[in-house]
Design a protein around this nucleic acid. Sequence first.
DNA 1: TATGAATGAGAATTCATTCAT
DNA 2: CATGAATGAATTCTCATTCAT
Lengths: 196, 196, 196, 196
Amino acid sequence: MRKRKNSEKYHRIIKAATKVFAKKGFYPAKISEIAKEAQVADGTIYIYFESKDDILISLFEEQMKTVLENMVAQISKLKDPAEKLEKFALTHLQLIEQNKDIAEIIQVELRQSSKFMKEYKNEQFIQYLDLIGDIVKEGQKKGVFKKDIMPGVAKRAFFGALDEMSRFWVLSSRKRYDIETAAKQISGYFLKGITA
Amino acid sequence: MRKRKNSEKYHRIIKAATKVFAKKGFYPAKISEIAKEAQVADGTIYIYFESKDDILISLFEEQMKTVLENMVAQISKLKDPAEKLEKFALTHLQLIEQNKDIAEIIQVELRQSSKFMKEYKNEQFIQYLDLIGDIVKEGQKKGVFKKDIMPGVAKRAFFGALDEMSRFWVLSSRKRYDIETAAKQISGYFLKGITA
Amino acid sequence: MRKRKNSEKYHRIIKAATKVFAKKGFYPAKISEIAKEAQVADGTIYIYFESKDDILISLFEEQMKTVLENMVAQISKLKDPAEKLEKFALTHLQLIEQNKDIAEIIQVELRQSSKFMKEYKNEQFIQYLDLIGDIVKEGQKKGVFKKDIMPGVAKRAFFGALDEMSRFWVLSSRKRYDIETAAKQISGYFLKGITA
Amino acid sequence: MRKRKNSEKYHRIIKAATKVFAKKGFYPAKISEIAKEAQVADGTIYIYFESKDDILISLFEEQMKTVLENMVAQISKLKDPAEKLEKFALTHLQLIEQNKDIAEIIQVELRQSSKFMKEYKNEQFIQYLDLIGDIVKEGQKKGVFKKDIMPGVAKRAFFGALDEMSRFWVLSSRKRYDIETAAKQISGYFLKGITA
DNA sequence: TATGAATGAGAATTCATTCAT
DNA sequence: CATGAATGAATTCTCATTCAT
């Protein structure tokens, strides 16, 4: 088997799997359900993917690539590290907003799945986190961020704050806060603190 | 079946399940493995729990009760909201540190599991989050936190920051930063921002 | 283990088992349910019975003994073979009527259960059938029944007719015909035929 | 799952189940044994049947349809109600004779099983019984059967007589009476009685 | 390539029976 | 005798994966 990523069917299966995994979760999702959603035969899936696990990983990489490219494009336009962080927050939350299925899988099924996290070196996700770390380092070099901030801690704290907010959106039906407000609040805490 | 929560076996099974779920994840974990770990027969598990799902939920509630009580005890001793937040961060990370298995399950299997999150109203977790929200509100009333902070966003952002940090610890074998530093850093971002 | 048939508990268990087997059938019935009904512990049942199978067989023999004795008492009072057959029919249907649970078990679970029928020589039932055969033979000797009637066929035909009627009663909630009418009809067919 | 009743495998499984159920009874029969007998994998059975219960019910309906059609064909050729009853008896016993397995299941497992009898409306069996009832009514209309015969009782009595006879054959290894004699005797009792 | 019927390993759960108290 | 917690063998059913067509 060689992956035929250009094939129309490959993408149809990825799309179907995204929908089914998001709805049911990875383990409870059935190959036959993905096949039905993709309008192919069960066996056809195994022409494009090695296993059920492989669908999840492929799905993740496929999506993360896009997310990463998009984020880099947004960030690189800006100069000010503080503005960059704010833009990161907004872009991240918009992305979640527009792709609930993908967001849920990334959060719930893959990023959290100990099974995959432990044996699958999640390169894309590390790069995504590092975008934040790089902004922090850049800010420190430019003297706009405090020197004693630890980028390795800060990148996780910032991402975690956004992520928890997203989870709340993904899992709750209605959303209480609008995206721009939430993005501004969260980046605000980081940049200026909450102390009066 | 009546739950015999006082029974020594009940706790032995909870403990075994915690270990096995943490190691393998909920779905891949086998009842027989939990039974073996708990040194009981497979069937014995069904004297104390209704189903595999029930083990996970019981485990979670059992642990969260302790966590919640512990956190309340730590926080209530302090007066200053800023100090409370810092204490919250430290206590949370210490807890994670001391109970990696429990932490992993709460994060990975239960809090994140779409299956459970959607049909299981996670009261304990909501209360835990609200502890942060209450500190924020208290700080605002006392005039030490900015008035325009939204407690509903802030509690998630703060918890998410800690949680992402914990995840990093839980999933990575070695730990790069010591707990007190990390806790101080993270609560510091919130309180005073990272801007120089 | 020696059977303690005089014990009050022995009879309580038999009675409980009769109720439970009648309601659920032999295989679906649970020992724990019989124990609960009999208000004894599960383990106690095994003091009085060797196994679940043993309960069914004991139950059957216990009940059949009574049924047989009762029938013999009724029949032996009469002289005329034709009257005896009529009395048999009436007594049989009355018995069914008054002991639906026992009737159902005898019909459904034991007499029909190939498992038991094949390895368990059902002496009591054979004797019961033979009561009919003996009446037929007696009638032939007395010259009141046709000589070419085959007692072995006739006893089964007569019993079967009654039995099918009983099954209808046991399994249907309401009863369309009164017992005396049905008994008279059925014995009437045998004795005088249905031809005008 | 869609039932593929035309499939060769569907019939192979029905046939295998008939054999296994007849030999062991419904509850003691194992799916794996049926699968082995049918020379398919265990899982294959679940492509054609929903559950073990479904096999029994399907088996029954499949067989009863044939039995019913066959009986109607035999009966409808005749004019005289008395002859029809005699033919019914003969055909029924022949059928039993030729299909011991099916007969045993119908009698022992399905017709008698409280589990199935109570929740499964046994249409085919009711129709079969009604064939007898209709003959009786027809005979009464034509004036060849007594007016005071109750068809609802008579049909059960007649069927029961045949059925008990069959059971004797099914459950005993050797048969003492030949079919035609037995059929004639039994229909004879009904038609002309046994009184000299 | 595409199909979907067939496979069979695997897993949760049940429950008759035992035995230490 | 009585108990009922503990056992673990046994069984149905599921579903990822294969492969002949």
